[in-house]
Structure formats: C-alpha cells, structure tokens
C-alpha cells in the first residue's frame, strides 16, 4: 500500500493539495530505551509535487518535521489535473502517488 494519501480540490482556478505521508521521521537524537544507544536518523528529505508532469513545488524537510508528515500547497490548475507527489528519504527510499484533482 502506498505511504501517501492525497486530496486535491480545485476552487476558482486554485488547486489545494493536502497530503499525508506515512514515515517515522526519526531525528537521530532519540535514545532507544532498551539499549541506551541512539536511534539512527530516518526522515524524508525531499518531496516533489508535480501537476500534469510539470514541477510545482520542491520541498526540503529536515528531521524536525513531525512523524507521518503533513503537507499542503496550492497551485494554479484545474479539475482533472493529475497531481503527483514523490518523497525521498535519507536512506534513499522513495514512494510516489498520483491523484486526480476534484
């Protein structure tokens, strides 16, 4: 199952994209209570948003973004646009999803 949930809605020529991504967003500063060692950092670094293939937004996240991060952005577009989101984390994992604007 995809780690990304997207809701994209158009109103008066502006498309509001709301997305939730499933990710631990470990800062690298938290301690493992059992071993006492640090839990290694694991967080999404980049999210690229595209509309009909054209890049709309490039987001750079640090470890101080909340677990299961939330992102909203707005672009000039219309109903039926294909909005694509793709994230890449610091371990090189990626996931992407395409949703249609309603």
């Amino acid at each position: 199952m995809s780690t990304i949930k997207i809701r994209a809605k158009e109103s008066k020529g502006a498309v509001t994209v709301k997305a939730l991504m499933k990710h631990p967003m470990e800062t690298g500063q938290r301690k493992d209570k059992k071993t006492g060692g640090k839990i290694p950092a694991h967080f999404i670094q980049e999210v690229v948003g595209k509309a009909n293939g054209d890049e709309v937004i490039t987001v750079h996240w640090g470890p101080a973004v909340s677990k299961n991060p939330y992102l909203t952005f707005v672009y000039s577009g219309s109903k039926g646009d294909k909005v694509e989101l793709k994230w890449t984390d610091n371990k090189g994992n990626t996931d992407s999803k395409i949703a249609e604007v309603k």
Partner: peptide, 27 residues
C-alpha cells in the same frame, strides 16, 4: 525554529505555477 537543535526546519521552493501558500506540522 530558533530554539530547536537545528533551527532550519524546512524549505519550500516554488515554480511559476504555485501560489505562495504552505502548511505542515513540525517538531
């Protein structure tokens, strides 16, 4: 965020199509 261990929390780079509105959740 001034008092976070690393103040830079996130950055959002726009294209000509995007409108300058963003929302997120931070620690």
């Amino acid at each position: 965020v001034e008092n976070n261990p690393q103040p830079l929390s996130s950055g959002y780079n726009f294209s000509s199509k995007s409108r300058p509105i963003i929302g997120t959740r931070i620690k």
